[in-house]
Design a protein around this nucleic acid. Structure first.
Lengths: 240, 240
DNA sequence: CGGCGAATTGACCCGCATCAACTATCGTGG
DNA sequence: CCACGATAGTTGATGCGGGTCAATTCGCCG
């Protein structure tokens, strides 16, 4: 249970040979625990390794001058939180644990070695950073063009899909140990308004979010409300 | 004047050897012209080549059910508009010319060849897709947490910086042949409100946008208003 | 001169923010 | 065991930024 979820996700998209699996296992360091609400990476700091999230939830944050924050992406088990740091060498945002997490690292030297000797695996890792970008695009569209209720519904659908992919969600519920204020920081809303929107979703009998758990009563309706399509998560096999 | 601007940008970030330049030149096909407002790529369609923008402006679009659109990124000369398509094999958005454009293509087979034989160049191309993602993140933060005037100012600063990088902008002006409605689709606003915000920027003597040209009167003040820092464009040399 | 898309401006409206008070939950120490 | 303090959630009253609708004007081209 270290890189299993990562492999599970990669294999949904493309084949991973035994040799590729072996080299991946070799470069991933032993996991360690991190307390909730800890900064793993600060904006601008030089990076020499990338972080694989084994368990828990992490977020990519940007701080604004006035103390407001925007979360740009949430990470779940099996995600690299900062694989883009491998080519960027520093980040334009912070990375923080939202909950208690278990994480491992992949040294950039080792990733470099992969790019020198495993081109297919390299393309697959590149692919995963491009899926992160696709998620960014959907969030951009949400913030630009969806109203508060559709935005929240979309986030709930996205996490359902991504958590299901690694066996952590069913069609009707999953654990999401975040606060309403966290959701507000994802959605470009205030905590107060998130609360009101959750109330409306509850009253419309679409879903509830209580004590760190999402319960979905009618997923198809929720998806329709959110105008959600999972295409952007690239869950099907690639031809290449 | 085909891949010159691309090389110019890449060399700002890292070295490109003669051999790497040679292979890049070989895989890029001869440029062709495309009229304004033409779809180059439609969401979901299978891709076998990636598009290098030689001249003009292109945009990445998402359409919403109700006919609204959100632009997720603008591309300028020297950008690959869909290099992410190389690993994704289809896109989650449309790509459209905003102006008359000159474009070339790089077949995915040839890019594959690069990943097999030129790991350093591969990392550099991977890097450029990660910068696109960084741009997405900044737009996300803009839409989530900046008000209309700061959002518009930020976009103007970003384009100034990116166009300057390829020699198409000075500190005080650059050509930007878009309509106010185009800007609205970037900024998650209505054309009417973009108009009002432009008026305010004019009256505060920060900048003007008229007949396809941005004129900046006070770039430092504009950057302060926008809370703009160019860090996310990764313009400095990487250590790797 | 006429036509058409883009820009401009005014009047009015609404979704979400703001401010403030109150409740619920839970861990901690006396 | 209860008092407490802290954090999260809930609700109401009010205000504002940006949307909507509609009428003009501008600029360009035929």
């Amino acid at each position: 249970m270290t890189i299993e979820r990562l492999l599970q996700k990669l294999r949904k998209r493309d084949e991973v040979s035994d040799e590729e699996e072996k080299i991946l296992r070799e470069i991933i360091e032993p996991p360690r625990s991190v307390a909730p609400r800890q900064y793993l990476i600060r904006e601008g700091e030089p990076l020499t390794r990338s972080t694989l999230l084994i368990e828990g939830i992490m977020g990519r944050y940007k701080d604004m001058r006035d103390g407001q924050r925007q979360i740009m992406e949430l990470h779940v088990a099996g995600d690299f939180a900062d694989l883009h740091g491998f080519t960027l060498k520093r980040l334009d945002h912070d990375v923080m644990t939202m909950t208690e997490c278990r994480v491992s690292s992949a040294p950039h030297d080792a990733l470099n070695y992969i790019t020198e000797h495993y081109p297919r695996l390299t393309r697959l890792l590149w692919f995963t950073t491009n899926v992160d970008a696709a998620i960014h695009r959907v969030w951009t569209a949400s913030l630009g063009r969806r109203d508060a209720i559709a935005r929240l519904a979309h986030l709930v659908c996205e996490l359902q899909q991504r958590l299901q992919l690694v066996g952590l969600a069913s069609a009707s519920e999953y654990g999401l140990p975040l606060t309403q204020a966290d959701l507000a920081e994802c959605l470009g809303l205030t905590p107060v308004h998130v609360n009101r929107v959750l109330k409306e979703l509850r009253e419309r009998e679409l879903m509830t979010f209580r004590s760190g758990r999402v319960t979905i009563y009618d997923l198809p309706k929720l998806k329709r409300l959110a105008e959600f399509s999972s295409d952007y998560l690239y869950l099907d096999r690639r031809s290449s």
